[in-house]
Nucleic acid binder design. Structure first.
Lengths: 232, 232
DNA sequence: CGTCCAATTGAGCCACGTCAACCGCTGTGG
DNA sequence: CCACAGCGGTTGACGTGGCTCAATTGGACG
């Protein structure tokens, strides 16, 4: 659970690098787009590498440039709940307060932009616009978290997986065909299931013609039928 | 599920009332405490009365003065997930965007202060301080939602109920003795269980000496044992 | 071609859900 | 003052969706 790969380099090292300007693509919110003085430092993480851990001081925030990241919490006995996946363009690690209250790990080799949290928070205390963007971001995350709450509290395995696949499809541009960036274990820990149940549910959905699998990760959705599974 | 009592009066009527200044007690965040120009209008709701519905235009936000409120979402087939309880002092209904994405109902006869959302949002675009408070509030709600996510995704019935009772005790001042303001159905719909399972779990916890019941709602906790059930 | 690990599949079990009976309090009407 | 209806809560019997344990398959890579 959460195998740690050897870090290529440390955030401290990243901080000492010369920042280069790059423009982020596909961001969900416009935050930082209109803050030309906030330049992120490019950085990379290997597959399964930890980006930050729960309880660590929250010095940086991150934007995914390429790859994917998961945020999760673990109980002492190892049970894990993933609270979100961050794909290209999305910002994560912005958890107000002095410490991170999640652990973040790279799903695959991932490039990010790193920003120092302090200057952004200081900017927020001066600029209502920045603060409103942070508010807006927190609100979007809140809505996602509450949707997940409904999913976990009241939906069956089929409904959970179907809703999840529709969500991922949406993030990949609603093409209906994509490669899942996460393992069955990640999906299980996001949906509050076991890998076996996830696997069986994939099989059921495939039997019902709601999707087709190719090589485990590659998926083609039959969106109408999937949406029918989710209803509401 | 969500029986609607006859409203005593409507929010529209509240809007036309003369605002009276009162000071809110026991608020979780200081929001509005230092905004003397933002005066709330007192208003009341009867037990089980709907305060606002999902999809309605979000014209007001609310602070509980006395009583308790639940926020929830429902699926088309009636399955319900309560996403939060709001006790005296807490602010709710502030769900950025034009419409509410929850339904809110009074658990018992409840007094609130109503604030118009528009002026607050306008204030936020002008004052970084106000915007930061809104951000901070959203962040606190986000943390709660993600804790609930872990609870629903990965914990057993006993752990859920124990964690819930500790949480409620905390909100009532950590006395260890209190009357639950909500029914078993509400608890079940918050914890993603059925009323029968909640009831049986109460019985188990009582057998194990982790709490004592008196008349259904009145509870005395054995905090050490309850905490032991939750661990982590 | 062999190794490794993700994924699938099967068999059996159990925590929690379902269905149903019953209890006890409260309010109401005779 | 009692009878009774209504409702929240508890308990029992039984069903089942998802979990556990275990074996097998399949794809990626050396």
């Amino acid at each position: 659970m959460g195998i740690k790969a050897t870090p290529r380099s440390t955030p401290a090292a990243a901080r000492s690098r010369t920042p280069r300007s790059i423009h982020a693509s596909g961001h969900r919110t416009g935050l930082f787009a209109d803050c030309p003085d906030l330049i992120g430092t490019p950085f990379s993480y290997a597959r399964e590498e930890e980006i930050y851990g729960e309880g660590e001081e929250a010095e940086f925030v991150y934007r995914v440039v390429e790859g994917a990241v998961r945020s999760h919490k673990v109980l002492s006995d190892g049970r894990r709940q993933i609270t979100g996946f961050h794909l290209a363009g999305s910002l994560f690690g912005f958890e107000q307060g002095e410490v991170h209250w999640h652990t973040a790990e790279a799903l695959s080799d991932t490039r990010v932009l790193i920003f120092q949290r302090r200057p952004i928070e200081r900017a927020a205390t001066r600029s209502a616009e920045v603060a409103c963007q942070l508010w807006s971001m927190a609100t979007a995350n809140l809505r996602d978290a509450q949707d997940l709450t409904l999913l976990l509290g009241r939906r069956s395995a089929q409904e959970r997986l179907a809703a999840f696949l529709i969500e991922v499809d949406g993030r990949f541009g609603r093409t209906g065909t994509f490669a899942l960036p996460m393992t069955r274990r990640d999906i299980a820990d996001y949906l509050g299931l076991t890998i076996e149940t996830v696997s069986r549910t994939f099989s059921q959905l495939e039997e019902e013609g709601a999707l087709r699998r190719a090589g485990g990760r590659q998926i083609t959705l039959h969106r109408a039928r999937l949406r029918h599974v989710v209803e509401t």
